[in-house]
Structure formats: structure tokens, C-alpha cells
């Protein structure tokens, strides 16, 4: 019922290469958990939600804490890159300010020094603050497995609360984001019970860029957190924005569609009804802000 005073017993193993991680995962199955920042893992262990026998520290594997940017290939963020590392990285700030903004919205500064992008995505909390940004930036997750590597699009990654497309013998190595389209702008808006630092009651990421092939002349993408079993894209809203010329009316209609895409639950933080209307309010606000930046 209540959390235990301290962490239960387990064995800590510091992994030195990816194959060792795969081997440990195969050997121990669900009894092994991977450690990057620990800000979620240790909390859940203390709460008694999980009780791994072995905790495998993967953040020292090659590339896990690296951020690489290439104009052609885009951004590669090691899974164990921390939120603060991400938020203050000059090329992330320049080319992916939306991602920096989302990373900076997580919890507190000291938590962000430990919390990682990979952890935030792999825990697959519906409230994960970086998920909407990664969704609208069309990120791909690089998974390591016994056969080597495979990539999964962020939109296919989240399968349920705490559930992902990752198989038992896989782990997340990196997140790849394509180069940002010319002239793009983004905004992450989050509603919590405190001004900053709380878990999201609703999180909305809006990302847009000019695109002559669309009737509206623009592509808008909308990612939502904390309002469905998984972080998700508001496809119908995006369709509205692709086909209607940008402006107050279109934004209102798109916000309505985003609200319809949300299927939230009542919980101790907020009611489903409030969450739904807040999706509408924040989406509209996000669209306005992004439109201002685009113009």
C-alpha cells in the first residue's frame, strides 16, 4: 500500500557492451531492469511496483550519452542523454528547440540531471513530456537486439500505458530525429497543478513548417500527452490544418479535433472532462504561438 523506506535488494551490474545487456536480458527476463537515470526506476522499486533481481546500468555503453547532429542525417540522441544535456545542447537548441523545451519541462532541475530521454520514452507513461515532441518531430527509436539493430517510428512505439513495441531482449540505444524542415517552429505547452515541475495533466506539442504541396501551404503536427493510454498524434486535427488556411477559425476547428482525439481518464490529478477541454485550450494556444513564429 505504501512505499518501502528504501530500495529493496538487487544486484547492480554495469554493462560495458551491448551484447552483455542482451545476454543479461535473455538470462533474467523480467527480473532484469535497465538503469539509465533511475528517476523512474528507483521510484517504482521503492513503491513496490517492480522488484528486479538485477539492475543493469546501460548508460556507460558507447554512444549512450552522446548527441550527434548532421545536417543530412539529423539528430541522434543516445538513450541515456539527460534532459539537461539535451536542453542545453547548442545544436538541439538551434535545430530542435521544441525538443529542448519539452526536456526542460520535466520535473525539477536536479531530476533533469538524471532523467534521460530514453527513460522517459521507454517508461511509456502517457504523461511523458518528451513523447509529444518526439512524435511530432517524427523521431525513430533505435533498438538493439541479438540480431543487431532495428528502428521503430515513435508513432508505433507506444502500445499502452507502460507498454512499448520493444521486445524482451531489446533495449533502446538512441533516438533519431530527421533534419528539421526549413522554416519550422514548435511549442510545447503543459498544464500541471503547479506552475512548473508537476506531472502533466495535459501536454500539447505543436510543430509546423511551410509546405507548398499542402492546400493550406503548411504542415502542422500535434502531439498529445496525458490524455490517452499512450502519447499520440492528433491526426484529424493535423488534416484540418493541412487543408484549411491558417487562422483563428481553423485553429479553433483543429483544437476541437485534437480534443476529440483525446481519450483521457479520471484520476487523482484531473477529470477526463477537464483534460479534454484543456487539450482544446492548449492546442489552440499552441497553434497561435507557432503561427506567430512561422509568420
Amino acid at each position: 500500500m505504501l512505499a518501502r523506506p528504501a530500495l529493496p535488494s538487487f544486484d547492480y551490474v554495469r554493462a560495458n557492451n551491448p551484447d552483455e545487456v542482451v545476454r543479461l536480458l535473455q538470462e533474467h527476463g523480467a527480473a532484469a531492469k535497465l538503469l539509465m537515470g533511475g528517476t523512474d526506476l528507483f521510484v517504482r522499486m521503492r513503491d513496490g511496483v517492480i522488484r528486479p533481481q538485477i539492475v543493469v546500468d546501460v548508460k556507460h555503453l558507447p554512444g549512450m550519452r552522446a548527441i550527434e547532429y548532421d545536417e543530412g542525417a539529423g539528430l541522434t540522441v543516445g538513450a541515456a542523454v539527460t534532459m539537461n544535456q539535451l536542453a542545453r545542447h547548442p545544436q538541439v537548441q538551434t535545430h530542435y528547440p521544441l525538443l529542448a523545451e519539452a526536456a526542460n519541462s520535466v520535473a525539477s532541475y536536479q531530476v533533469r540531471n538524471r532523467a534521460t530521454l530514453g527513460g522517459n520514452l521507454c517508461n511509456a507513461s502517457p504523461a511523458a513530456d518528451t513523447a509529444p515532441a518526439v512524435l511530432v518531430l517524427e523521431g525513430r527509436l533505435v533498438l538493439h537486439n541479438p540480431q543487431g539493430e532495428r528502428e521503430v517510428a515513435a508513432r508505433d512505439f507506444f502500445t499502452g500505458p507502460g507498454q512499448t513495441a520493444m521486445r524482451e531482449n531489446e533495449f533502446l540505444k538512441a533516438v533519431r530525429l530527421p533534419p528539421p524542415p526549413e522554416g519550422s517552429a514548435g511549442k510545447y505547452l503543459k498544464l500541471g497543478r503547479n506552475k512548473v515541475g508537476d506531472l502533466s495533466i495535459v501536454g500539447v506539442a505543436v510543430f509546423a513548417f511551410p509546405d507548398g504541396t499542402k492546400p493550406s501551404g503548411y504542415v502542422f503536427r500535434i502531439g498529445l500527452a496525458s490524455v490517452a493510454p499512450v502519447p499520440l498524434r492528433a491526426w484529424e486535427a493535423e488534416e484540418v490544418l493541412a487543408t484549411h488556411s491558417p487562422g483563428e477559425e481553423t485553429f479553433a476547428l483543429a483544437a476541437e479535433k485534437a480534443m476529440e482525439a483525446a481519450t483521457p481518464i479520471d484520476d487523482v490529478r484531473a477529470s477526463a472532462a477537464y483534460r479534454k477541454v484543456m487539450v482544446r485550450a492548449l492546442t489552440r494556444r499552441g497553434l497561435e504561438r507557432v503561427w506567430e513564429a512561422l509568420e
Binding site: A3, P5, A6, T39, V43, R46, N84, A107, S108, Y109, Q110, V111, N113, R114
Partner: peptide, 18 residues
């Protein structure tokens, strides 16, 4: 013991952590 209150904050390599 849960990273919420910050009373345990220390610097590790110059950066604050819980």
C-alpha cells in the same frame, strides 16, 4: 526518498542531483 522534495540534493561533478 522519491526525488520530490530536494532535501537530499548534492553536487555530482558540479551538477545537482537528488
Amino acid at each position: 526518498s522519491a526525488g520530490e522534495c530536494g532535501a537530499c540534493t548534492v553536487l555530482v561533478d558540479g551538477e545537482p542531483v537528488n
